[in-house]
């Protein structure tokens, strides 16, 4: 029974745009099954998701284009179900099932 909670996963969709697609297999939308809790048993937050994406989804070695000093790179916007994550608690936002998280870079040109 305890094993069930440990392996519980949250189904979400993660989108990348504004040039970030290139770090993630040139694909805009990814379906992700995120572990419901982190290594310390805390509910999965966006901070946890960002770390998870770097370790599990990113194809490109240039992680610094996505994360700087363990935080999302300045200039990358994060939208939680279309809302600016600044309205949702930023890194501390707890991921809910079927959430859509969009990472969009403002850093790339035309």
């Amino acid at each position: 029974m305890s094993g069930a909670t440990e392996t519980a996963e949250i189904p979400i969709t993660v989108d990348f745009s504004g040039g970030l697609e290139m770090l993630f297999d040139n694909q805009r939308r990814h379906s992700v099954s995120l572990p419901a809790v982190d290594a310390n048993g805390k509910p999965a937050t966006i901070a946890f998701l960002i770390d998870y994406l770097c370790k599990n989804l990113m194809q490109d070695p240039r992680a610094e284009l996505f994360v700087l000093d363990n935080h999302i790179r300045p200039g990358i916007l994060v939208l939680v179900n279309d809302a600016d994550w600044e309205l949702e608690g930023e890194e501390a936002y707890e991921i809910q099932p079927r959430d859509n998280i969009l990472f969009v870079s403002t850093l790339h040109g035309g």
Binding site: S17, G18, G19, L65, G75, L77, L79, D82, D84, L102, V104, S105, T106, L107, H108, G109, G110
Partner: peptide, 27 residues
């Protein structure tokens, strides 16, 4: 720039993001 990107997002504008292949350091 943030609002320009959000405007494009919420109006679902069709744009393309790229970085010049000759100037990776500019990024």
């Amino acid at each position: 720039e943030k609002e320009i990107v959000l405007y494009a997002h919420h109006k679902k504008l069709d744009y393309f993001s790229t970085e010049c292949i000759y100037s990776p350091e500019a990024f």
